[in-house]
């Protein structure tokens, strides 16, 4: 049986890579994907904890995180398309003003 701390270490590494990606990359779609990466890291740690503690509540939490991620994907990609229409680029540094 694999100890839970292995899963948590893996999740921490994934989360850190996601944080670095948000800081490094300037393409908003890649930033979006890095946020998905971080959500997945947290999900993985919650499933690992759920098994360690011995009830399913953590997995229910993961389910709701997935629901929110789906909603976020719909809205986020809509915003990305609107941003591309108004600035003609996907650089996050181009989107520095709120009005059109």
């Amino acid at each position: 049986m694999i100890p839970v701390s292995f899963y948590l270490t893996l999740a921490a590494l994934m989360f850190t890579i996601g944080v670095c990606g948000v800081a490094i990359r300037r393409n908003v779609i890649v930033v979006f994907m890095c946020i998905e990466l971080m959500l997945n890291a947290v999900n993985l740690s919650m499933v690992a904890f759920s098994r360690t503690v011995g009830n399913l509540d953590g997995q229910i939490g993961v389910f709701f995180v997935m629901v929110v991620a789906a909603a976020e994907a719909a809205i986020g990609l809509g915003i990305i398309i609107a941003l591309f229409r108004s600035t003609r680029s996907l650089e996050s540094s181009e989107a520095s003003e709120l009005r059109r």
Partner: peptide, 25 residues
């Protein structure tokens, strides 16, 4: 950030009693 997280996993988990393999999703 990883340096902050890593000790938590090794020190903080000692109090856990592992109920592994009792639940199935």
């Amino acid at each position: 950030f990883l340096g902050i997280l890593a000790p938590l996993f090794y020190r903080g988990l000692r109090g856990f009693t592992d109920h592994s393999s009792k639940i199935e999703g």
